[in-house]
């Protein structure tokens, strides 16, 4: 069919997003769970708390630590990843750096905020889902942030041309099959400012296509923010009603 991708979406449609706050029954200060299509990510946040090691003590700001666990059953093949796996470390550094600049760390000097992410199922957009889950978990934990950090992916199909022979629109929110096929990037914006706090692209793409991909990614981030904000408000309302008994 014309103009539809392999899962029936149009170029600017997001996958189904389902998110929840405070999912964890453990003692984590904040937790969240997000599903973007079939990508499922769980996030727990602890802190601010005493740093686990002396080296992590910073005199004027909190240290942000991130740990990412890929479940062995998360991909199509069963792969058990160790702590030193490159992909794991990459994700950890990216998330840690992104949130170290968005959390108001100067309010909690000499303490540590730990973000612990479990990836239960991978179907494309893993980094984006992790960033979104972390934002929600931080909000649930009550840790002050500058604003929401919402992330989304976009891809540029280079082999399919439309009727006029020009390149088609970039695809929003690529899934695993699309990710392995076409170049894609992940972009994360802060709140509604459309300013980019994180950008990651690992494929080759012509520089002319870049602007389009980033623009589509940013519009996707705005949509994601709307969905996340609605869930946060809904959850907040339920908690408020439960507390005040109305």
């Amino acid at each position: 069919m014309e103009g539809l991708r392999n899962d029936g979406r149009r170029w600017n449609e997001l996958r189904r997003i389902h998110c929840q706050l405070s999912t964890s029954s453990t003692n984590a200060d904040g937790s969240s769970y997000i599903e973007q299509g079939f990508t499922k990510v769980l996030c727990n946040v602890t802190g601010p708390a005493e740093p686990s090691s002396r080296q992590k003590v910073k005199q004027d700001a909190a240290t942000v630590t991130c740990e990412v666990y890929f479940a062995a059953f998360s991909g199509t093949d069963r792969i058990k990843r160790g702590r030193n796996d490159k992909k794991v470390q990459e994700l950890q550094t990216a998330i840690q750096k992104t949130f170290a600049s968005v959390i108001l760390t100067h309010l909690f000097s000499r303490s540590e905020i730990t973000i612990s992410i479990h990836i239960l199922s991978q179907d494309g957009g893993t980094l984006a889902a992790c960033i979104n889950a972390t934002t929600l978990a931080l909000i649930d934990a009550g840790i002050p942030l500058k604003d929401y950090v919402c992330a989304c992916t976009s891809g540029q199909s280079t082999s399919i041309f439309d009727n006029e022979g020009s390149t088609p629109d970039p695809w929003l929110d690529v899934n695993y099959l699309e990710e392995s096929d076409i170049p894609s990037l992940t972009v994360a914006t802060v709140g509604e400012t459309e300013k980019i706090v994180a950008l990651s692209m690992e494929n080759k793409v012509r520089i002319e296509m870049l602007e389009g991909m980033i623009a589509v990614g940013i519009s996707g981030c705005a949509k994601v923010k709307g969905i996340m904000d609605a869930e946060v408000r809904r959850y907040g309302k339920t908690r408020l009603e439960a507390a005040t008994g109305e």
Binding site: T189, E194, K195, S200, K204, E208
Partner: peptide
């Protein structure tokens, strides 16, 4: 040839597109 092979911006100050 004008091909961008990778871009990496992790955190730091938020910048306009």
């Amino acid at each position: 040839n004008g091909e961008v092979c990778q871009i990496s911006k992790s955190g730091g100050v938020a910048v306009e597109a």
